[in-house]
Protein backbone atom coordinates (compact mmCIF):
# COMPACT_ATOMS: atom_id res chain seq x y z
CA UNK A 1 0.00 0.00 0.00
CA UNK A 2 1.62 3.20 -1.22
CA UNK A 3 -0.90 5.67 0.15
CA UNK A 4 -2.22 5.59 3.69
CA UNK A 5 -4.99 7.82 5.03
CA UNK A 6 -2.58 10.55 6.12
CA UNK A 7 -1.05 10.78 2.65
CA UNK A 8 -4.48 10.93 1.04
CA UNK A 9 -5.38 13.80 3.38
CA UNK A 10 -2.18 15.58 2.39
CA UNK A 11 -2.93 15.15 -1.32
CA UNK A 12 -6.49 16.39 -0.81
CA UNK A 13 -5.07 19.45 0.92
CA UNK A 14 -2.58 20.07 -1.92
CA UNK A 15 -5.47 19.89 -4.40
CA UNK A 16 -7.68 22.03 -2.12
CA UNK A 17 -10.34 19.35 -2.03
CA UNK A 18 -12.53 19.00 1.02
CA UNK A 19 -12.95 15.26 1.56
CA UNK A 20 -15.13 13.89 4.35
CA UNK A 21 -13.23 11.93 6.97
CA UNK A 22 -15.36 8.82 6.39
CA UNK A 23 -14.56 8.89 2.64
CA UNK A 24 -10.77 8.89 3.09
CA UNK A 25 -10.30 5.08 3.35
CA UNK A 26 -12.34 4.54 0.16
CA UNK A 27 -10.24 7.05 -1.77
CA UNK A 28 -7.06 5.50 -0.35
CA UNK A 29 -8.16 2.07 -1.53
CA UNK A 30 -9.06 3.26 -5.04
CA UNK A 31 -5.93 5.38 -5.46
CA UNK A 32 -3.77 2.45 -4.36
CA UNK A 33 -5.46 0.24 -6.94
CA UNK A 34 -4.79 2.80 -9.67
CA UNK A 35 -1.18 3.18 -8.53
CA UNK A 36 -0.88 -0.60 -8.64
CA UNK A 37 -1.97 -0.48 -12.27
CA UNK A 38 0.45 2.37 -12.97
CA UNK A 39 3.23 0.28 -11.41
CA UNK A 40 3.20 -1.80 -14.63
CA UNK A 41 5.22 1.02 -16.19
CA UNK A 42 8.26 -0.14 -14.25
CA UNK A 43 8.50 -3.19 -16.55
CA UNK A 44 10.26 -0.94 -19.05
CA UNK A 45 13.61 0.79 -18.79
CA UNK A 46 13.09 4.33 -20.04
CA UNK A 47 16.25 6.28 -19.12
CA UNK A 48 17.32 6.60 -22.75
CA UNK A 49 13.90 7.65 -24.06
CA UNK A 50 12.90 11.29 -24.35
CA UNK A 51 9.57 12.26 -22.79
CA UNK A 52 6.79 13.02 -25.31
CA UNK A 53 4.53 15.90 -24.29
CA UNK A 54 2.83 16.55 -27.65
CA UNK A 55 1.92 13.73 -30.04
CA UNK A 56 3.37 15.64 -33.01
CA UNK A 57 6.16 17.26 -31.00
CA UNK A 58 4.93 20.66 -32.08
CA UNK A 59 6.08 23.56 -29.94
CA UNK A 60 3.54 25.93 -28.47
CA UNK A 61 2.74 28.71 -30.93
CA UNK A 62 3.60 32.21 -29.78
CA UNK A 63 1.83 35.43 -30.71
CA UNK A 64 2.83 39.06 -30.69
CA UNK A 65 2.71 40.62 -27.24
CA UNK A 66 -0.22 42.93 -27.95
CA UNK A 67 -3.66 43.28 -26.41
CA UNK A 68 -6.19 41.25 -28.39
CA UNK A 69 -9.06 40.99 -25.93
CA UNK A 70 -11.63 43.64 -25.15
CA UNK A 71 -12.79 44.28 -21.58
CA UNK A 72 -15.77 42.00 -20.83
CA UNK A 73 -15.58 42.10 -17.05
CA UNK A 74 -19.24 42.87 -16.47
CA UNK A 75 -20.28 40.13 -18.90
CA UNK A 76 -18.00 37.54 -17.29
CA UNK A 77 -18.86 38.50 -13.72
CA UNK A 78 -22.51 37.53 -14.30
CA UNK A 79 -21.33 33.98 -13.52
CA UNK A 80 -19.51 34.92 -10.31
CA UNK A 81 -20.98 33.85 -6.95
CA UNK A 82 -20.27 37.22 -5.31
CA UNK A 83 -19.08 40.53 -6.81
CA UNK A 84 -19.11 44.13 -5.72
CA UNK A 85 -17.96 47.21 -7.64
CA UNK A 86 -16.38 44.99 -10.30
CA UNK A 87 -14.43 42.96 -7.74
CA UNK A 88 -14.77 39.29 -6.82
CA UNK A 89 -15.67 38.85 -3.17
CA UNK A 90 -14.01 36.23 -0.96
CA UNK A 91 -13.81 35.85 2.83
CA UNK A 92 -11.43 38.27 4.51
CA UNK A 93 -7.79 37.22 3.93
CA UNK A 94 -5.91 39.94 5.85
CA UNK A 95 -7.08 40.98 9.30
Amino acid sequence: MVLDSDKVKKIAHLARLGIKEEDIPGYAQDLNKILGLVENMSAIKTEAILPLAHPMEVAQRLRADVVTEVDQRVHFQKNAPAVEAGLYLVPKVIE
Partner: peptide
Amino acid sequence: VRFGYRCKDPVDLEDLYKRSR
Protein backbone atom coordinates in the same frame (compact mmCIF):
# COMPACT_ATOMS: atom_id res chain seq x y z
CA VAL B 1 -14.57 32.55 -6.79
CA ARG B 2 -15.02 33.54 -10.43
CA PHE B 3 -17.72 31.15 -11.65
CA GLY B 4 -19.38 27.91 -10.73
CA TYR B 5 -20.47 26.47 -7.41
CA ARG B 6 -19.62 28.15 -4.11
CA CYS B 7 -20.19 26.48 -0.73
CA LYS B 8 -22.43 28.13 1.86
CA ASP B 9 -20.92 30.38 4.55
CA PRO B 10 -17.17 29.79 4.10
CA VAL B 11 -15.22 30.71 7.23
CA ASP B 12 -12.04 31.63 5.36
CA LEU B 13 -10.53 31.42 1.88
CA GLU B 14 -9.15 27.92 2.33
CA ASP B 15 -12.52 26.69 3.55
CA LEU B 16 -14.13 28.35 0.51
CA TYR B 17 -11.78 26.55 -1.90
CA LYS B 18 -11.94 23.19 -0.18
CA ARG B 19 -15.66 22.97 0.42
CA SER B 20 -16.64 24.50 -2.94
CA ARG B 21 -14.48 21.91 -4.71
